[in-house]
Design a protein around this nucleic acid. Structure first.
Lengths: 136, 136
DNA sequence: CTGATAAAAGATAATCGTTATCAATTTTCT
DNA sequence: AGAAAATTGATAACGATTATCTTTTATCAG
């Protein structure tokens, strides 16, 4: 893999963002520096960078794949209201992974824990904005 | 939500399968009984059924969404070689979920643990079929 | 049982995210 | 500097999923 200005820029965008951007978001950011960069280039590089482990892909049943510059063990909570993705620390994960591996005869290469729910802010919005929600 | 023959058939297919079928696979199965059923109907129903909690969506960074008739707490391992999805039991999950909920001020409505790796069968295939793998 | 009303089906077009293709450009390595 | 390899930008293609719309089916009061 060779060096390229665009790839370097793309990696830096993901590394510097506290959020977990989609390819589209990285593309919009990258265009500020490289107005002619193509969306295909962004996808290609994000995938290559995740293959070599420079960043991680996060999947969700809703919407697009997201990318994460943090590569140390941690997980994600996705708010089903605002669709923001937050980090979760889970120190006991290593032990858990090993147990699953052993008990099921499965060589774990990757573990993604995806939680869904409602974040603090959205919950507050609801309880303040709506006096008597339907309940359902 | 009204009753319909097709919806009932679709639910039964997912409930009766030990595997975790994709919409396409459910469609092919349903066509045996309703040859004129449309793929859109299958998608519509699978989504509706998962909304009311009659079945669960499983997402993966590869390929399509899968559906699971088991709605009790358990998780999934996906083999990156054969792409099969296996169940994992994780009894201590309830406690884990609560801790995450409490520590992060996040109302967890759903927790999906997606493990990726290589299953027993595929590992065996590799070690038997290739004398000296490249390593990479 | 019948007819009105609402919901669902089937057919198909449209959309969305992502990947593939390919000529032109950039990087790397003598 | 110049050849070989890798990468880009532009765009077409793709696969999965959703939306639209007309016809059919289910529900329910009379």
């Amino acid at each position: 893999m060779n060096y390229s200005q665009q790839r370097s820029c793309i990696l830096n965008i993901v590394l510097s963002k506290p959020v977990h951007p989609t390819a589209e978001q990285v593309y919009n950011e990258a265009r500020k520096k490289y107005p002619r960069i193509s969306l295909g280039t962004v996808y290609r590089n994000l995938n290559q960078l995740s293959e070599i482990g420079a960043l991680k892909k996060i999947c969700s049943p809703y919407g697009s794949v997201r990318f994460d510059g943090r590569t140390d063990p941690h997980f994600h909570m996705e708010c089903t209201v605002c669709r923001e993705v937050f980090d979760v620390e889970l120190p006991e994960l290593a032990a858990l992974e090993k147990r699953i591996s052993d008990e099921n005869n499965f060589t774990v290469t990757r573990c993604e824990i995806g939680l869904q729910g409602v974040c603090e802010k959205c919950r507050k919005n609801f309880s303040e904005g709506i006096d008597k929600p339907d309940g359902k």
